[in-house]
Simulated scan of single mutants.
Amino acid sequence: MSLAHQWRLFQVALQYFTRLPVPAMAEFDPAWLTHSARYFPLVGWLVGAACAGVFWVASGTFEPAIAAGLALATGVLLTGAFHEDGLADTCDALGGRVERERALEIMRDSRIGSYGSLALLLNTGLRWAALASLGAGLGALALFLMHPAARGGAASLMARLDYVRLDDSKAKPVAAPQSAEALRWMLGFAALPAALLGWIAPLATLAGLLAVAAVHGVCRRWYRRRLGGYTGDALGACEQLGETAFLLAFVAVAA
């Protein structure tokens, strides 16, 4: 594929996964959504850089808890709480003991239940507290590394499991099964920031990456057992849990 086409695929990923403005395209092929998934972790570079910048600047003016809140709010604004929504829907669907078809029906429901509410509260609270415990430098580093790593852990599920939605879900094209080549792109973009900047806090960075890998493994087994595969919401849940796991592991080693 040409470089121009790769740039087009990245723009498609940016448009799908964030609220950042993207120039209008003269033409569009639905297959581009499927191929753009390889750039999901690269989108995390931009989101992570924005959150890291806000945390760094805010830490010079506000208390750590406020700086952490502003950084997390930046991520929510940039993504439109896209992945948080997936976490809530997945926990509502899989939190109770229901059959596979009923779980998929719950995921389609836009209403949020007790499992989803608690998942959002606990997941956001843990990230907030963990980030607030880090100084400006390490906190900014953790945010920049966390976003692509967590997205890589979630996106790589698409190469390991089957997509289980048979309807016309809006996530179906971008969440379609990925090739081995696409998986290499995903993992490369996910790991490159850590390879370039991990030397600043090597053990904490390694701990964060291992935590994301552990979340990927747990989610893969969980989704296979309960759903027989994954959905777009399930990917969002894995991404959010990956972020939290990365931050907690990073703090545990860096503190």
Results as ranks from 00 to 15, higher is better:
239 E>N: 10
24 A>W: 13
233 D>F: 12
119 A>N: 05
88 A>D: 09
31 A>V: 15
124 T>E: 12
36 S>T: 00
40 F>S: 12
226 R>W: 10
197 L>T: 04
15 Q>D: 09
1 M>K: 04
2 S>W: 13
97 R>P: 00
108 R>A: 07
82 F>H: 13
105 E>K: 14
93 A>E: 07
73 A>K: 06
4 A>Y: 12
65 A>R: 15
218 V>F: 15
233 D>R: 07
154 A>Q: 05
144 F>L: 10
128 W>Y: 10
76 V>R: 14
108 R>N: 13
94 L>W: 13
246 F>V: 12
48 G>D: 02
165 R>W: 13
171 A>R: 13
253 V>I: 14
51 C>H: 00
93 A>Y: 14
13 A>N: 01
187 L>N: 12
184 R>A: 12
150 A>Q: 08
9 L>A: 05
78 L>R: 02
67 A>W: 07
7 W>P: 00
18 T>W: 03
48 G>T: 04
103 A>Y: 12
212 V>I: 03
253 V>T: 01
145 L>G: 05
102 R>C: 04
216 H>P: 04
216 H>V: 06
209 L>P: 03
199 W>Y: 09
57 V>R: 02
177 P>I: 06
17 F>K: 10
219 C>R: 07
6 Q>E: 13
249 A>P: 04
253 V>N: 08
140 A>F: 12
219 C>W: 08
91 C>Q: 02
37 A>V: 00
214 A>Q: 11
130 A>Q: 02
90 T>F: 14
89 D>P: 04
129 A>M: 02
18 T>A: 00
111 R>A: 12
239 E>Q: 14
209 L>W: 13
91 C>V: 15
69 G>H: 11
197 L>C: 07
47 V>D: 10
38 R>E: 07
30 P>G: 06
29 D>S: 04
141 L>S: 01
161 L>I: 06
233 D>K: 05
3 L>F: 08
247 L>S: 02
253 V>Q: 03
15 Q>T: 09
32 W>S: 06
113 G>S: 05
33 L>C: 15
34 T>P: 03
234 A>I: 11
201 A>V: 04
30 P>E: 05
58 A>S: 03
45 W>S: 09
92 D>Q: 01
155 A>S: 13
81 A>L: 01
63 E>M: 10
171 A>L: 13
227 L>P: 03
69 G>I: 15
61 T>S: 11
106 I>E: 03
234 A>N: 08
194 A>S: 09
161 L>E: 00
159 A>C: 05
139 G>M: 09
80 G>L: 02
231 T>E: 03
178 Q>N: 08
48 G>L: 14
56 W>N: 03
21 P>Q: 07
245 A>Y: 05
5 H>Y: 15
249 A>E: 06
131 L>S: 02
123 N>V: 08
82 F>T: 12
127 R>D: 03
41 P>C: 10
176 A>E: 10
108 R>W: 11
238 C>N: 12
60 G>P: 02
244 T>Q: 12
164 V>P: 04
184 R>W: 15
82 F>W: 05
58 A>E: 07
6 Q>S: 03
8 R>C: 09
28 F>A: 08
148 P>D: 06
218 V>H: 14
43 V>A: 00
235 L>T: 09
184 R>C: 10
204 A>L: 07
53 G>H: 00
254 A>F: 15
48 G>W: 15
158 M>N: 12
80 G>Y: 01
224 R>P: 06
6 Q>W: 09
